[in-house]
Design a protein around this nucleic acid. Structure first.
Length: 288
DNA sequence: CACTTGACCTGTCCGC
DNA sequence: TGCGGACAGGTCAAGT
C-alpha cells in the first residue's frame, strides 16, 4: 500500500472513521511492531479519544486526547483496516473482514468503546506502530531530516532543484526515492514521474538539465495529485479502511507494464534494476 | 563524506 | 507437485 498517495488515502479514511472514538483496549503481538511498555499503553492509550489523524511523508499520526500520538509506518505490506459492526452492508467487500480479522498478519488490534476495531496488519513485519508524546514528534530523527511535502504550495520547482543538487553523483531515481530530498515518493511514483519527464532512471543527477528538473517537478506533482485523487494504487483485492479500492494502476503508464507498448511512443516497455529496485522504463523516449 | 548494498520478514510466482 | 531462487509499493545500518 504505502507511498504518499496510499498513506494519504488511509489517513482520509481513518479521519472519517475514528476521530472522536475512545480507545478501550489494545492487543499486540509479542515479537515486534509495538515497542511501548504496558504501563505507557495503560496511561496514554487506553481511555484516550482520537482527536486528529495526520500524515507527514509516509508516516501516519493518530493524535490522542492524552497528549500522546500513535505513529505508524506501513513500510511495504502494512495495512490499517477498520471494522465496524454495521458500517458496511451485506455483500460489501469489507463485510467478510468482520469474521476474517484478526488473522496471522495482524500485529496490533485497537478496540473502541463502541465495539468497532482497527487492525494493523503487516505480512512482512517491516512496519511499526509506536506511542510517543505528540510534542516530541518533530524532534525525531526522521522528521528532522525528511524533505518537503511534494504537493505543498510552498514547495517550488526551485526548492526541488536545490535539493537535488545535494545528490549530484547518484542516479535520478535514487534521488527521488531519497526521503530527505522530497517526502513520500516510492517505487511506483518514481517510475511514473520519470516517464512523464522523459528522463531515464539511471541518469546521474548532475547530468539532468535544469529544464528537465523543472519538468520532473511538474510531472511528479501531477502524478501524485492524480494518485491521491484515485485513492492510490492497489494490487489484487485489497480494499482500504473505508472499503474503497485505489485505481491509480488503471492510469499507470510504465509501472508494471513491461512488455507492453509505451503509451507515448509505442516502444516496448522494459523492466530493469535501478537503485536496488525493480524499475520500468521506455527505452526509446526516456533519454539516458 | 557520498553512495551502494545488505538486512529485516513472509508469501507468491516462475522455471526446472 | 516439489523445490530453489528471485522478487515484492521501505528504510536503516553497514560496507566501499
Amino acid at each position: 500500500m504505502p507511498e504518499l498517495p496510499e498513506v494519504e488515502t488511509v489517513r482520509r479514511g481513518l479521519a472519517n472513521l475514528i476521530i472522536g472514538k475512545v480507545i478501550s483496549g489494545q492487543v499486540h503481538d509479542t515479537d515486534k511492531g509495538f515497542p511501548n511498555t504496558p504501563q505507557d499503553v495503560q496511561h496514554f492509550l487506553i481511555g484516550a479519544s482520537v482527536t486528529e489523524v495526520r500524515r507527514r511523508a509516509k508516516v501516519l499520526m493518530i493524535d490522542l486526547s492524552t497528549g500522546y500520538s500513535l505513529l505508524i509506518h506501513l513500510k511495504m505490506t502494512g495495512q490499517l483496516v477498520f471494522v465496524g459492526e454495521t458500517r458496511f452492508g451485506a455483500g460489501h467487500p469489507n463485510d467478510s473482514l468482520i469474521n476474517d480479522l484478526p488473522d496471522k498478519s495482524t500485529r496490533v488490534t485497537l478496540t473502541f468503546e463502541d465495539g468497532t476495531k482497527l487492525f494493523f496488519n503487516d505480512q512482512r513485519k517491516f512496519g511499526w506502530m509506536r506511542l510517543m508524546p505528540t510534542i516530541e514528534i518533530p524532534n525525531t530523527a526522521f522528521m528532522q531530516k525528511v524533505g518537503p511535502e511534494p504537493l505543498s504550495t510552498y514547495f517550488t520547482a526551485n526548492d526541488f532543484i536545490q535539493r537535488l543538487a545535494r545528490r549530484p553523483k547518484t542516479n535520478i531515481k535514487a534521488a527521488l526515492l531519497d526521503q530527505s530530498v522530497v517526502a513520500g515518493i516510492g517505487n511506483i511514483y518514481a517510475d511514473e514521474s520519470l516517464w512523464g519527464a522523459k528522463i531515464h532512471p539511471t541518469r546521474l543527477v548532475s547530468l539532468v538539465t535544469e529544464k528537465e528538473k523543472t519538468i520532473l517537478y511538474t510531472e511528479m506533482r501531477a502524478v501524485m495529485n492524480l494518485a491521491v485523487e484515485k485513492g492510490g494504487s492497489s494490487n489484487s483485492t485489497y480494499v482500504n479502511a473505508e472499503g474503497k479500492k485505489g485505481s491509480y494502476m488503471d492510469f499507470a503508464r510504465v509501472f508494471r507494464r513491461e512488455g507492453l507498448e509505451c503509451p507515448r511512443c509505442g516502444a516496448i516497455i522494459e523492466k530493469t534494476r535501478v537503485a536496488g529496485r525493480g524499475t520500468h522504463v521506455c527505452p526509446v523516449c526516456q533519454a539516458i
